[in-house]
Design a protein around this nucleic acid. Structure first.
Lengths: 195, 195
DNA sequence: ACCTTTACGGAATAATCATTCCATTATTAA
DNA sequence: TTAATAATGGAATGATTATTCCGTAAAGGT
């Protein structure tokens, strides 16, 4: 019948995600998107509806790639202590090397949009739940194998660990990119597991 | 000579601070300010220059009132453990009761503006430094009096405690206002002091 | 009463915003 | 080749943005 193929929608979504990630929803204009995505204004609106819907798709794409990668790493863990340490090292390294100070798209969106945008708040909450759940299971595994003490609740610990990461993601957007500060926070955080 | 008095500039600043605090810089329009501050557009620009300068003044006002109040509470502390516990209870209570989900203006501004606005980043960094410094001195006092173990660095601890607060301030802007989550995070955080 | 300054309401400006529309070109299956 | 769909560039729209300007009213010290 007709022309079948489109541009690779996932590649466009990845670019959109990175634009929103670096500058937020409000500070990324339709013009920025046209220039940054490499598709025309008409294609943009034909394909994604509008800016808000594109942002939702970008946020979901972040969840499906970034968060999924983290969760898979957690689920595949054999060395439990090592994996948790690795997660915090990854956050630290990303924060210290990213010239754009992007932080975490979920944290950024929480601050910028959650209070006035239920749809976004829902996605962010689900993302948090996913990560805390997989962390909780990992900790439980560590407790059953004797790596961590049974005295603390795995759920409490997972909430605590993720809260520490949230804090680090804010720090990543500041201009205080001091490795010592990250190391201090990480080692204090992880010390809770060794009680 | 002439008409001397103006409207109370501090009262205006307090209103501006609350508007920016609830909605951020970009989402608070000049029109919002005119309606929310109760002064005319002309007076606004005659008195504060422009929106950005008004935001800077609001951020400084936040520091001079909210952060100062916290620091004075820390400096005046006699019961060290109690004061730290009180700080976290205050953050929790504010987060759970604030219908506007304002969070913390410093954290909000870090996310929204710090990466692209040096002036804001500088104010936020100075604010962080002030709070971490006074926390550090409090912890040191606690170590000298035997309340806390000397094994941990007071500087590391202060950075860790403030990072936990940053995390909680993000959580406050989400739609997951579950007291249990706050309690878990707070008790895990404070457990580090009892090592 | 008279300057001088302060504040005001409101119009005006010019830029930017998200979004829509249209005519044209490209692509593919029948 | 032809019909149908996809994608384009670019103009147009209308709303909203921050900011400036102006004429007028109000207030206080001389």
């Amino acid at each position: 019948m007709a022309r079948t193929k489109e541009f690779d929608e996932n590649k466009i979504l990845e670019k959109a995600m990175n634009l929103f990630w670096a500058r937020g929803f409000n500070s990324t204009s339709a013009q920025d998107l046209v220039e940054g995505l490499g598709i025309s204004r008409s294609s943009l609106y034909d394909t994604f509806g509008n800016k808000h819907q594109l942002f939702i798709r970008s946020l979901e794409y972040y969840r499906e790639t970034m968060s999924r990668r983290l969760i898979e790493m957690i689920n595949a863990s054999t060395n439990i202590e090592g994996t948790i340490w690795q997660i915090f090292m990854k956050v630290t390294h990303e924060s210290l090397t990213d010239k754009l100070s992007k932080g975490c798209l979920m944290v950024n969106s929480t601050i910028e949009l959650s209070p006035h945008d239920t749809q976004i708040a829902t996605i962010v909450a689900a993302n948090t739940q996913d990560i805390e759940d997989s962390l909780r299971l990992l900790i439980k595994k560590g407790q059953q194998s004797g790596t961590f003490p049974n005295t603390l609740s795995a759920r409490s610990l997972s909430r605590f660990l993720y809260n520490s990461i949230r804090g680090l993601r804010v720090l990543a957007k500041s201009k205080q990119l001091n490795p010592e500060v990250f190391d201090d926070i990480v080692s204090m955080t992880l010390s809770v597991l060794k009680k």
